[in-house]
Design a protein around this nucleic acid. Structure first.
Lengths: 261, 261
DNA sequence: CTTGCCCACTCGTCTATACGAGTATGCATG
DNA sequence: CATGCATACTCGTATAGACGAGTGGGCAAG
């Protein structure tokens, strides 16, 4: 085992940089340089207290900085560990192409299988409800909507929580209102119902999660979410679905292809 | 002025939820309900110590949670304030359409003017350098590249930091290697040089900023960044430019349009 | 050998105190 | 009236100590 002083330097008492920041800097640098590897345990609070000759709260303060940056995570009773970068799911911009839809399987399942992950869907909920102001606007002033909520997991880890909203006059009484929408998902059903899809619009934001999002996505601290709102338009120019998706940002890379013309 | 007890409740000593979390919960809820409005000052640490009958560190702990969530920010000597949501810039997916390019003005300037903001560009740097592994791969195994770095500001606030990388055999000695690339930007120059643009690929990630990004973007704590990597392809299928962009997530909404076919 | 308990070590929460430094306000001085 | 300083209030940093609770290893009892 390598001794602490060989990895972490000393403090600069002349510096005006706060001690706990100096410690955080040294730990961050050590992690970046690979002196501490992914999943590896950092020195315990007590060891750092010893090494730097500071109080425990100061060390904890340093850790809390690194936690906020998403670099490390603490486990009660075990230690503080370098946060491993989880496998990332790439979302290609053609993921809703009709040819995929015609294959029958849902987009999520297909992709997950492709990378060898075990996909799951839970927290299914399908119900009619009052449309929020925003959803109503996007769907063209509808009052009530059919909401389809579900959570996606990859190898048991929740990565995405999505809600689809559809106007009642389209969805009510159809298979879209059933828990299982059938092969190809609701987009396939929409087209069968005569709503030939023309294009999608996606809006992307990134922000820190709310406490409830932390819970449903089991997010580590320092992990933002990607908030994606997709609106599907049929060839008549009508918005036929709005899908509101919140994704664990450390589990996704979104990919888009744009024409240059 | 409304008294504290009418806005914030008391603690539940029977709850197993940590005191500092309970306080954070109450403050968060008060903010969500609009009891504290944007930009408004929250009760001072001393007042909350008084109100809840806890020690100051406990109150500070609560604040640090809310800071991590990006809900509030502290100003030394003044107080803790509800973080105002800054105006947001929308990036449409057609922002690189040729018709815009032919107008002459850079995309950033045009858009900013449209929303009445005052746009600025600084930290201009243009130089040749060794390509990183990632950039080299994306550009098709080039060794050295021309790098164009710049920072964009809106009404004086830095919102985006971007670096364009171009293969030397394309860019060297052209106006692309000049600080000012001329009307329509480097994409217009590329097309003049015979590299007719075909399409772009954009990769999007969200994560917490590094310390250096916090500095150059002057990010408040609890604000993630959107990391966008765009590759431009010409009609010959060659990658002619890679643009690496880091954006303050609270200043942007990205918008894409996807065909359904 | 297995079971179960103890103990050492870990992080989590909270208190109490001290001093430093930035901000704003009002009052005294010129 | 204007300037400048004193002062009170704000958050920032750091110390020292206490107890709680989760984890894991070792040891003793069965």
């Amino acid at each position: 085992m390598t001794s602490l002083p060989s990895i972490l330097g000393g403090l600069d008492p002349t510096s005006d940089r706060a001690v706990f920041r100096q410690i955080a800097d040294q730990l961050r640098e050590a992690i970046d340089r690979g002196r501490f590897k992914e999943g590896e345990k950092l020195p315990s609070e007590a060891e750092l207290v010893e090494h730097y000759g500071v109080s425990r709260m100061t060390v904890r303060n340093s850790f809390s900085i690194l936690q906020g940056e998403g670099l490390v995570h603490a486990e009660h009773g075990r230690g503080v560990f370098v946060r491993p970068r989880p496998p990332v799911r790439r979302l290609a911009s053609d993921r809703f192409a009709r040819r995929h839809r015609e294959q029958g399987k849902s987009a999520f399942i297909v992709e997950a299988d492709a990378v060898g992950s075990h996909p799951t869907v839970d927290s299914l909920e399908v119900k009619e409800e009052k449309a929020s102001q925003d959803i109503s606007t996007r769907l063209g002033s509808v009052r009530r909507v059919l909401a389809r909520r579900r959570r996606y997991l990859l190898d048991g880890r929740p990565v995405e929580f999505a809600t689809s909203y559809l106007p009642l006059d389209i969805a009510r009484g159809t298979q879209i209102a059933e828990p299982n929408p059938g092969p190809g998902g609701i987009y396939a059903r929409l087209e069968e119902l005569g709503h030939q899809l023309d294009h999608f619009e996606e809006e992307i934001r990134a922000r820190m999660p709310s406490p409830s999002e932390v819970k449903t996505l089991q997010l580590a601290s320092g992990v933002p979410v990607i908030h994606l709102i997709r609106t599907a338009f049929d060839t008549a120019g009508r918005a036929v679905e709005v899908c509101d998706t919140v994704m664990a940002a450390d589990a996704y890379v979104l990919s888009y292809q744009l024409p240059a013309t």
